[in-house]
Design a protein around this nucleic acid. Structure first.
Lengths: 197, 197
DNA sequence: GCCATTTCTATCCAGCTGGATAGTTTAATT
DNA sequence: AATTAAACTATCCAGCTGGATAGAAATGGC
């Protein structure tokens, strides 16, 4: 017994993801959200509870998709594939398909700076998931004897998360595209030096 | 033949540094700049050319000070001292003396996202200086035979810059202080694994 | 003591922000 | 066909933004 929305939830979230990615949370005005998502500010308010709640819904959707589709799989990934995954992050920047490349969670770190507990929880989820998967991959390979780590798998996993965040920073900072690729190659080179030849 | 300013250039820049660090560029309003620096918006406009020019002056001042005082010295630093320097970044967060700890240049990366060429130039200077100094330290030690690198000094220097940017990200993202220290320790552990025992 | 110059104070401005509200339109249920 | 719940359009709002401007106050050179 209600009128249909012009834009359904899925396409609205997809449009918002692209907008928040491009402009950031504060940089995306509610008027722009109207344009890019097809939602009205009225619906943004009544159905999603305002701009911030809507952003959190977008961030959740992004994280769910990233964990299922884009993060390395803890069970099957090898260290060699992980090295290629790092390089692909910098190379896919050339074809910036917003939904797949980059990272909305990383962007949120710098935008909110711990000011919002709801955002904090999602950033923590992001970091813990990555660190856990990296550690699982490294532990499995170290036990199998296919890699030789210079430190514990847990510490090495933190090094890799640090390098990933650093790579995202370089991608944001880069004057030239080649710079990000060079950094990704350096990180991949470090990982490959851990492989038992 | 002119009236004296209430706040001189030096103290104004120092106050602005603290404010921009805390709130970011967009987050710091010109009214707040008035309060924290002692400048008036009138002077901000006439003497500095507006908010953005003033920010650039602040960023320059920060970089000059950082390069002279806080960045590792290319001629004298050992890899061991570099490892300690990484750890000190996370530990000094406990005593957040804004001017010394953290990094205004790093914050600017996420805030401007390549939108401003003037800011870009300063970020490039920041990254190049760090990468150059790290490479110099690693090259010197590798040639002396005191460290054994898993890759070229240049690639290893990029790994270290990546880890430094990643560490700054974790500091911003951290739910708990211990997390940043743990990441710094992991990075330091990697560096120490390169030392010839 | 006067003058030129700069900074100060005090307003004013247009533009944008997220949000609220009132009245209209649409659709599914009965 | 009547009812009802939700989304639509179109305003309106106070608050804040960076910046402009006019007149008063202060300072150093003469």
């Amino acid at each position: 017994m209600a009128r249909k929305r012009k834009a359904d939830h899925e396409t609205a979230i997809a449009g918002a993801l692209a907008l928040f990615w491009e402009k950031g949370y504060t940089g995306a005005s509610t008027r722009e959200i109207e344009e890019k998502t097809g939602l009205t500010r009225f619906t943004l308010q009544t159905a999603y509870g305002g701009k911030e709640s809507f952003f959190l819904a977008t961030l959740d959707s992004y994280l769910n998709n990233a964990e299922a589709q884009h993060f390395p799989d803890a069970e099957t990934f090898t260290l060699s594939e992980l090295a290629e995954w790092f390089e692909s992050i910098a190379s896919e920047q050339k074809i910036p398909r917003v939904e797949d490349a980059g990272c909305l969670a990383f962007n949120s770190i710098s935008q909110f700076e711990r000011s919002d507990p709801e955002v904090n929880a999602r950033i923590a989820r992001y970091l813990e998931t990555l660190e856990g998967r990296f550690a699982a991959i490294l532990t499995r390979e170290a036990q199998a004897g296919t890699v030789h780590l210079p430190q514990s798998p847990e510490a090495a996993a933190q090094v890799l998360v640090g390098l990933l965040l650093g790579l995202h920073s370089v991608i944001k900072a880069r004057t030239e595209d080649a710079m990000a690729r060079s950094y990704a190659a350096a990180a991949a080179g470090l990982m490959r030096s851990w492989e038992v030849s």
